[in-house]
Amino acid sequence: MRTSDELSEADFRSLYRRLRGIAPGGANRRGALDTITEEQVLAAVREVRSGRAVSLAAPVNTRTEPDDADPAQHRLTAPPGGRPSSEGLEFARDRFAMNIHGDVDSHIDALCHVIYDGTLHGGIPAADALTPDGAGVLSIDLADDGIVGRGVLLDIPRLHGVSWLEPGSNVTAEDLVCAEARQGLRVGRGDILLVRVGHRRRREELGPWDTANARAGLHPTAMEFLAERGVAVLGGDGNNDTAPSAARGIAFPVHVLAIHAMGLHLLDYLRFEDLAPICAREGRWSFLCVIAPLRLPAATGSPVNPLAIL
C-alpha cells in the first residue's frame, strides 16, 4: 500500500503500451469478456455450496451529498399527489433517472466510456463512434447477455489489519499478491476480480466526503497483475482510481489502462460489507458472480446490482 510513487506521463504511456500488448482483451472488440469461456462458467457454478445470494450493490442515492452533486431522481408519478382513492383500481407508478457515472451509485463502465488520445479501446476513432444518440460501438450492449463467471474478492484492508484504506492510498500489485496468499487462492484467467478498499465502510461510518479529490484505489502499476493473470472484469467499492491521481497529467489512469488499453469492463462503487464477513467466516473468497447490466442501447454504462452466489 502506497500513498505516493507518482508516475511521470512518459512512464504512464510506457505502461499503457505494455499492457495493451499483453492484456488478453487488448486487441479484441469485446475486450476481456471473451476470456470467460463456457467451461469457466460451468466451473464457477460449482463454486456454489449454500445457494446464498449476496448483493454487491449499494442502495441508490437520491440525496445531494459532498460526493454526489447530481444524485439519482426518483419520484412517484401516480396516484396523483401520492393519495390513492378509496375505491376502484389504481396503479402506483414512479420515474427514475440517474447519472450513471457518478461517485456514489454502483455502475458498470462500457468499453466506450474512456476516450484517450481521441480513440476508444482498440484504436477506434471516438469521433466516428460517438454521437448525440449514443455509442455506435463498444457500448454496454456487449454485455446484453450478462457477465457470469468466478468472482474473487481480495480484501486489502483486512490484509493490513484496518477497517479501510484512507483516501489517497494506492493498492499495489504486491498488495494483491499478498492478499491472494493470505486468503488462500489464486486469481486466474477469466476471473471477475473484486478489490475491497473499504470505501463504503468508511462512508457509512464517517459520512460522505469529496471523493473526487480524495479516495483510495489501485496504483496504475497494479494493472500489470491483472494483465498477467488474464482478468476478465475489475470491480471495486470505490472508483478503482486513486485521488489524487498516481499518474502525472492523467486524472483516471486505472480507467485508461483497464478500459482503453486492456478492454476490461469496470464496476465502480460496489459494496462488499455484506460479502466480506461471510467470506472471512467461511474461509473462502471465490464464488459464482452474476452481473446483469440494463439493456440500454448505445449506452456508455449502466446501473448494476451484481450478485455473489456462495
Results as ranks from 00 to 15, higher is better:
residue 162 V to K: 13
residue 159 L to T: 00
residue 66 P to K: 06
residue 211 T to D: 09
residue 96 F to N: 06
residue 121 H to Y: 02
residue 131 T to V: 04
residue 27 A to G: 12
residue 263 G to C: 13
residue 291 I to E: 01
residue 171 V to P: 10
residue 6 E to K: 09
residue 301 G to E: 12
residue 263 G to K: 07
residue 69 A to D: 10
residue 249 G to A: 09
residue 102 G to A: 13
residue 215 R to E: 06
residue 121 H to I: 04
residue 225 F to Y: 15
residue 262 M to Y: 08
residue 91 F to Q: 03
residue 236 G to H: 09
residue 42 L to W: 12
residue 273 E to M: 11
residue 196 R to D: 13
residue 239 N to D: 15
residue 4 S to A: 13
residue 24 P to M: 07
residue 138 L to C: 03
residue 152 V to M: 06
residue 252 F to K: 12
residue 245 S to W: 12
residue 204 E to Y: 02
residue 229 R to F: 14
residue 292 A to F: 10
residue 73 Q to R: 14
residue 158 R to V: 10
residue 282 E to D: 14
residue 103 D to M: 11
residue 3 T to E: 13
residue 117 D to R: 15
residue 233 V to I: 15
residue 4 S to W: 08
residue 39 E to D: 15
residue 305 N to A: 10
residue 213 N to I: 01
residue 73 Q to N: 03
residue 261 A to S: 11
residue 200 R to G: 01
residue 42 L to E: 13
residue 194 L to F: 15
residue 289 C to N: 05
residue 69 A to C: 02
residue 155 D to G: 09
residue 90 E to I: 09
residue 135 A to K: 12
residue 75 R to Y: 13
residue 93 R to V: 06
residue 64 T to W: 03
residue 195 V to G: 02
residue 189 R to Y: 08
residue 174 E to G: 10
residue 147 I to G: 02
residue 138 L to G: 03
residue 280 A to C: 10
residue 132 P to M: 09
residue 101 H to S: 05
residue 291 I to L: 15
residue 15 L to A: 07
residue 97 A to H: 07
residue 167 P to H: 06
residue 121 H to V: 03
residue 242 T to I: 14
residue 206 L to C: 06
residue 5 D to Y: 08
residue 195 V to F: 01
residue 3 T to C: 07
residue 52 R to C: 02
residue 9 E to W: 09
residue 131 T to F: 09
residue 60 V to G: 05
residue 181 A to R: 15
residue 185 L to R: 05
residue 180 E to R: 02
residue 127 A to I: 13
residue 98 M to C: 11
residue 92 A to R: 03
residue 288 L to K: 04
residue 35 T to W: 09
residue 52 R to N: 00
residue 175 D to R: 09
residue 99 N to M: 12
residue 53 A to C: 08
residue 258 A to Q: 11
residue 61 N to E: 14
residue 46 R to W: 05
residue 267 L to C: 02
residue 214 A to V: 00
residue 239 N to S: 14
residue 240 N to S: 05
residue 271 R to M: 14
residue 20 R to S: 14
residue 62 T to M: 02
residue 186 R to I: 12
residue 303 P to M: 02
residue 93 R to I: 01
residue 152 V to H: 06
residue 272 F to P: 07
residue 11 D to T: 00
residue 207 G to V: 04
residue 155 D to S: 15
residue 203 R to P: 00
residue 217 G to C: 05
residue 251 A to D: 15
residue 79 P to E: 09
residue 149 G to V: 07
residue 52 R to H: 04
residue 238 G to Q: 06
residue 90 E to K: 00
residue 45 V to Y: 04
residue 89 L to C: 01
residue 284 R to Y: 10
residue 249 G to Q: 07
residue 181 A to K: 14
residue 23 A to Y: 04
residue 299 A to L: 13
residue 270 L to Q: 13
residue 122 G to H: 07
residue 145 D to N: 15
residue 245 S to Q: 04
